[in-house]
Every structure is written in structure tokens, then in C-alpha cells.
């Protein structure tokens, strides 16, 4: 009898974990996955090889829509850019860095319709410049996403400070 209850508890636990890990493939999860992927691909490893960077850039290009709007509050990053321009900008920024880790967390997805979604999330950037300077920034981000050819791509990003003085 006791063994039966232990087994039921374990099965319940495995079921809950399996549901969250394998079966939650609704549209919100797909949007989340894209944003997490954006953060992963924009990061740079300590001794990352050029070939790795090229492969990552190719994947990164697919995450942005052909035309993407940025609202960063800085002239250089305000306006419309092509996905290629964005990938080049990220590569250029990474050239000044020894390493960087970007994390997307607290992602909240709002599905507007079958083809459009918006997501609010927190972006955390931890990096070290080639001169050895450590940089740490946290920003509140808001992204507009569109489903093109079955894939969620970013059409706009707005960045704000979490606490704006």
C-alpha cells in the first residue's frame, strides 16, 4: 500500500515536470523561446571562435523581421533597421567585448491575434570589455513579434530603464 502511494507521488511529480518541459508548446512558449534564443545568440563566450560567431549570426538574422523598429532612446538606435544591419551592429558591439552574457527573464507574452504578439521582459547584460572593464546593465524591454512563415520574429523592440530617475 505504502509503495503504491510513493509511486503515485513520484508519478505525479514526473508528470508535472514533463508537462512543463516537453508538452507546453503553445504560442506563448514559442515567443518566449525566441526571446531566450535572441539573448543566447547575442551573448559572446570567453574564447569564442569566428566560425561560431558566423553560425550564431546566421541564426540571429532569422530572429528579426526583415525590417525591425528600435526605440532605445539613443539616436544611433532609434528607427527602422534591416535584420542584417541589426546583426552587424550586435557583431560590432561584441568586437569590443571579451565576453558577454545576456539573459532574458520575467517574460510575459500577450497574444494579440494568431499572427501578432507582444512581450514584456527583463534583459540583463553582464560583460567584460577587452580593456578588462566590467559592465552590468538591467533594462526593461518590450518586443513586438509577428509570425512569418510559421516562425515568430521580432518586429520592434523598446528599451527602458527598470528604474528611470
Amino acid at each position: 500500500m505504502v509503495k503504491k502511494f510513493i509511486l503515485i507521488d513520484i508519478l505525479l511529480l514526473v508528470g508535472v515536470v514533463a508537462y512543463f518541459v516537453f508538452f507546453r508548446t503553445d504560442e506563448r512558449e514559442l515567443v518566449k523561446k525566441q526571446l531566450i534564443e535572441l539573448a543566447r545568440l547575442s551573448s559572446k563566450g570567453e574564447s569564442e571562435k569566428t566560425t561560431t560567431m558566423i553560425i550564431k549570426n546566421q541564426s540571429l538574422q532569422k530572429i528579426f523581421a526583415p525590417e525591425c523598429e528600435l526605440h532605445f532612446g539613443i539616436n544611433m538606435f532609434d528607427g527602422k533597421f534591416s535584420n542584417l544591419q541589426l546583426v552587424n551592429s550586435i557583431s560590432q558591439a561584441n568586437m569590443y567585448l571579451q565576453s558577454s552574457v545576456i539573459k532574458a527573464s520575467d517574460i510575459e507574452v500577450f497574444l494579440i491575434d494568431e499572427q501578432n504578439a507582444e512581450a514584456d521582459f527583463t534583459g540583463e547584460f553582464k560583460g567584460r570589455s577587452k580593456s578588462g572593464e566590467y559592465i552590468e546593465e538591467v533594462r526593461a524591454l518590450s518586443a513586438k513579434m509577428q509570425k512569418i512563415d510559421g516562425e515568430w520574429v521580432i518586429t520592434a523592440i523598446t528599451i527602458q530603464k527598470v528604474l528611470e530617475k
Binding site: 539573459k103 540583463e124 527598470v162 528604474l163
Partner: peptide, 10 residues
């Protein structure tokens, strides 16, 4: 309590 990032709150 304000959610800053991930598990960091202010």
C-alpha cells in the same frame, strides 16, 4: 517590493 531582474527584488 519591485521585481528588478530574475530573482532580484528591490
Amino acid at each position: 517590493v519591485i521585481r528588478y531582474v530574475d530573482k532580484k527584488f528591490f
